[in-house]
Design a protein around this nucleic acid. Structure first.
Lengths: 192, 192
DNA sequence: GCCACGACTTGACACTATCAAGTTTTCCGA
DNA sequence: TCGGAAAACTTGATAGTGTCAAGTCGTGGC
């Protein structure tokens, strides 16, 4: 069945953001490309930020699915490695979403309960991975520290790879996946 | 002595970015606030991105100074902790600069040799901290992995604290500095 | 004195999101 | 089947933006 304008707009926006970043994006241009008037997109979404909210919503859903994949590791460090790997893979495979999800100026996710919930769920998948890694005996502060560590590491890696100068600075890495693995493994040795 | 228009513009822009993020920023508004015509700022800077380049340049200089502070630690893990602490402190104290420095869409730092050099220098301060931490015997790949780890961790922490939902999600942390310390310490245990 | 150059102004242009209407299409119930 | 209402989309206007292309003004050097 034919694609609705709503879907077309989102798809085109995500594509643009993945290729050029969110900032030059013009919904007037997207409307023109879709062969409709400049105001048509705003009939489906209240305003500009509502469109970005929709993208973030979709992004957080995809994120949760990507992180909480099927195979569960037994070794603690292996869990950390998997999460980091998946975090980075997600960011690369979903650049258009990822670049919007953490940009508070583009989407006010706390203004949409649905997006808010999706973001909470995404964070919960991270937390559950950590608590799985850290075991039952850990204190709440312990979990907090390890969650922050893993999240920061994965997020830093992802943003530096996608938009930052990491690859330029670190030099040609034979295999990006290998680098991510090594980094996560190294950091995970602090977890016991 | 009186502040030149060039300085006024930069200062006002940095202030705005620190408070509201880089995106709604209008140099016409800044010009109006400074009591000059809308075109006056563009006489000192070629175009919009040149102004952001200037901010990034200043930011990278401040960054290098902030990271390579005086006291050198002997314990390896302590070096990692210091770098992370300073990285985060810098980002918080210089929000306006930090938010611009890593936004490739705002400033094309590779188009300004001066900014490019400042960015390279900034990265070198990170690398030298790592090589200090890792010792002489380490291989080039080893340094690469540890540099990526520390950089990702510090950068992830900084961005999640400044713009991200970390504090909201992780919950009220009694002391942010304590959290950063714990996180860096934990991760640093993987370095030996 | 003059004139050249830097600092700034003025005006226009193309572009943007958004408000406020109008018009067309679709669909559902009597 | 028909009518009407709501959804989908259009049209026009407004205020805002960065940028191009000129013009003006004042100051320092020859």
């Amino acid at each position: 069945m034919a694609q609705t304008l709503r879907e077309k707009v989102i798809k085109a926006a995500v594509k643009y953001v993945a290729e050029n970043g969110p900032d030059g994006l013009s919904f007037r241009q997207i409307a023109a490309d879709a062969g409709v008037s400049h105001q048509a997109p705003y009939h489906h979404f209240g305003d500009r930020s509502a469109i970005f909210n929709e993208i973030a919503l979709d992004g957080f859903k995809r994120f949760s699915a990507a992180i909480s994949g099927p195979p569960r590791a037994d070794e603690a460090s292996e869990i950390c490695v998997r999460v980091c790997e998946r975090y980075v893979d997600f960011a690369i495979a979903n650049k258009g979403h990822f670049r919007v999800m953490f940009r508070a100026d583009l989407c006010q996710i706390d203004e949409s309960p649905e997006t808010q919930k999706a973001a909470d769920d995404a964070f919960d998948t991270l937390l559950s991975a950590v608590s799985e890694m850290v075991g039952k005996s850990a204190s709440i502060d312990e979990i907090r520290v390890q969650a922050t560590t893993m999240w920061s590491l994965a997020h830093g890696l992802a943003t530096l790879i996608i938009d930052g100068p990491l690859e330029k600075k670190i030099g040609k890495v034979s295999d990006r996946r290998a680098l991510v693995r090594s980094v996560a493994q190294r950091a995970a040795e602090g977890f016991r």
